[in-house]
Amino acid sequence: MDEPLLLRNGTMKRVMNIHPGTVGKVLLGMLPFILTIIVYLWASGVRLEANPNDKLMPSLTTIGAAIERLAFEPSKRTGDYELWSDTTASLQRLTLGVLIAALIGLLIGILNGAIPLVRANLSPYITILSLIPPMAILPILFIVFGLGELSKVMLIVIGITPFIMRDLQARTLELPAEQLIKAQTLGASTWQVMVRVIIPQILPRLIQAVRLSLGPAWLFLIAAEAIAAEQGLGYRIFLVRRYLSMDVILPYVVWITVLAFLADWLLRQISYRAFPWFHSQLQDKS
């Protein structure tokens, strides 16, 4: 703790006014992770002692062996390094799906936000469409697009595009009217207002929207892979579920979490580098 906890008269500060220092922050942040691992190791030890063949909570050695088999030894069946081929397959689907969703969301969101005629035309339709639970139409996607890559990418696209569209429409409508009027007094046409005033200001907000959609995107990816796939992180987890292979499932879940974290971190870094004005604006408000 960097600051004194006690006031000059000897009483303690209100809890809401006590801020951890830099080191304190890191330690406090690490604590839940460390506790989780300790609790797991303890519980796993207790179970394995009672039954050495217990599969539910494998020991670190068993998990390590599984990781080595999946990541560093070619599969006997296919000759692939399974962890890496699963990761590439999943990331390809995810990236493609999110990219397509971002592009459609940007285009429709901005048009809806900026052009009243388009908004009157499309906004009610999109509001209704976005209420359809994407998982409910997954069978339709499999029927229409087959069991290949396309249907998995489509599920992600259908799952997150409505949110991005509606979010960007709202963000576009939030741009101060003064700016749009000012641009017109500078002689800008509708098109020029879009390319020089609206799009550059919406791009950092698109990154924000994509960051928020990554969670659902993973959900749809794993769901689609669980039902029909030949490789992929979600496929593997659901495949080995039959053998109760927690030694594979657990590291896969951790790996997916790491990937999700990295994707989010990367997007945040891009946004900070590319749109410094946007982030200092946010700081002004907070």
């Binding site: 009027i181 004005w277 946007f278």
Partner: peptide, 14 residues
């Protein structure tokens, strides 16, 4: 032909 300056939001933040 008619320029405007508002109390705020008159310039482009980006």
């Amino acid at each position: 032909d008619r320029g405007i300056v508002f109390q705020k939001y008159s310039v482009f933040p980006h």
